[in-house]
């Protein structure tokens, strides 16, 4: 193993892609387009946010016969918003319902709320978000819209995968069709170095791509996130290893570039539909759930949601990372056997 040869190959791949404007577009602009559209759709989509309200507000009794409760007035307003599904719960249930995901936000209206408001002592509504620490905020709607956009944040890394898979598959196919694979194998570079070189070359673009998508999501789609960026990039790196090797492996079964593209409906579309990006995996019927759990993007999506929304640390996403790593290693082994067959 000579790192120098890996770098030589990686540099060549970077050189080739940088020169190919369409590929650059595929890597950097298509994901932005997809994110923009997804953002648009998610903002108007029917699926409402599950809101739990804990009403402890005692209200204020005003003579002669009037009972005034700020909490009830606010909840009434919330119920009128069809993007929210509002349900009354007890304080004790809040924690567990948030954890199992049946509620996304809990608003706690404290006993002194109305009185406090009337007296101007600044009573506050407590807001609990899924998994995160209890915080206080006066801006309920800001928080609610943040919840919506956080769903979007969890999607951020996904639109990148297909382009890396596609580009690797096509480059590898070209390598074989041009005859350069034969020539490459007639140099001292080893198969492992070829695979590593490809991973590094495309890894550079994959990470740049993630950075661009994240920036786009944060600054253009104005999405608030709490994630640890180092973890996001670690996750992205593992996904790239998988995507590159899957591309190498599947390119063996393609004779033309069109045939590489034909793998997209087979490999990419089911993952995009079932991995929890559009619909929570737990809402899928049983057999589709089983399929979903066979696909790496499901774990990637779950981990990314954890990192971006619940500010999970390495420890909490470690199981998902381990499964993704296993998928990546599996793809690596497949691509290695593919290459071994190159000599007949």
């Amino acid at each position: 193993m000579q790192p120098e040869r890996v770098l030589i190959l990686a540099r060549r791949i970077v050189q080739q892609i940088r020169r190919d404007h369409r590929s650059v577009g595929l890597i950097f602009f298509v994901p932005m387009l997809v994110m923009g559209l997804l953002g648009f759709i998610l903002r108007i989509q029917a699926s409402p946010i599950e809101v739990g309200v804990v009403i402890e507000d005692e209200g204020v009794r005003l003579p002669p016969n009037l009972h005034l409760s700020a909490a009830e007035e606010l909840v009434k307003t919330l119920r009128e918003n069809d993007r929210l599904r509002v349900r009354s719960i007890e304080r004790e249930e809040a924690e567990s319902e948030l954890r199992d995901g049946s509620l996304e936000v809990v608003l706690i209206f404290p006993a002194e709320l109305t009185r406090g408001l009337l007296q101007g002592s600044g009573a506050q509504i407590q807001i609990l978000l899924e998994g995160s620490n209890p915080g206080q905020s006066g801006a309920i709607l800001a928080t609610l819209s943040a919840t919506l956009s956080q769903r979007l944040a969890s999607i951020a890394p996904s639109p990148g995968g297909p382009s890396i898979f596609l580009l690797t598959g096509v480059s590898f196919l070209r390598e074989r069709a041009q005859g350069t694979m034969e020539r490459l194998l007639a140099t001292p570079i080893s198969r492992a170095e070829i695979v590593l070189g490809y991973m590094l070359g495309f890894g550079v673009f994959a990470l740049l791509q993630s950075a661009v998508i994240l920036l786009f999501t944060i600054f253009v789609l104005r999405i608030h996130y709490v994630g640890n960026l180092a973890l996001v990039f670690l996750l992205e790196a593992i996904l790239t290893v998988g995507a590159v090797n899957l591309g190498i492996f599947l390119s063996t079964y393609a004779r033309t570039e069109l045939q590489v593209v034909q793998f997209i409906p087979l490999v990419i579309v089911p993952q995009a539909l079932l991995s929890g990006i559009l619909l929570p995996v737990k809402d899928l019927p049983g057999f589709l759930q089983a399929i979903a759990y066979l696909m790496p993007l499901t774990y990637a999506n779950r981990a990314m949601t954890g990192v971006m929304i619940k500010s999970f640390g390495l420890g909490q996403v470690a199981p998902d990372l381990a499964i993704l790593l296993a998928f990546a290693v599996g793809a690596l082994l497949l691509s290695a056997t593919t290459l071994r067959r190159e000599i007949v």
């Binding site: 060549r12 080739q16 020169r19 190919d20 041009q178 005859g179 034969e182 020539r183 007639a186 001292p188």
Partner: peptide, 19 residues
């Protein structure tokens, strides 16, 4: 170990057209 000591010119061109 032979690869670096042998120069092989294939019958087909085997070059990268985009380089």
């Amino acid at each position: 170990r032979l690869f670096a000591e042998v120069g092989y010119m294939t019958q087909a061109e085997a070059l990268y057209p985009d380089l």
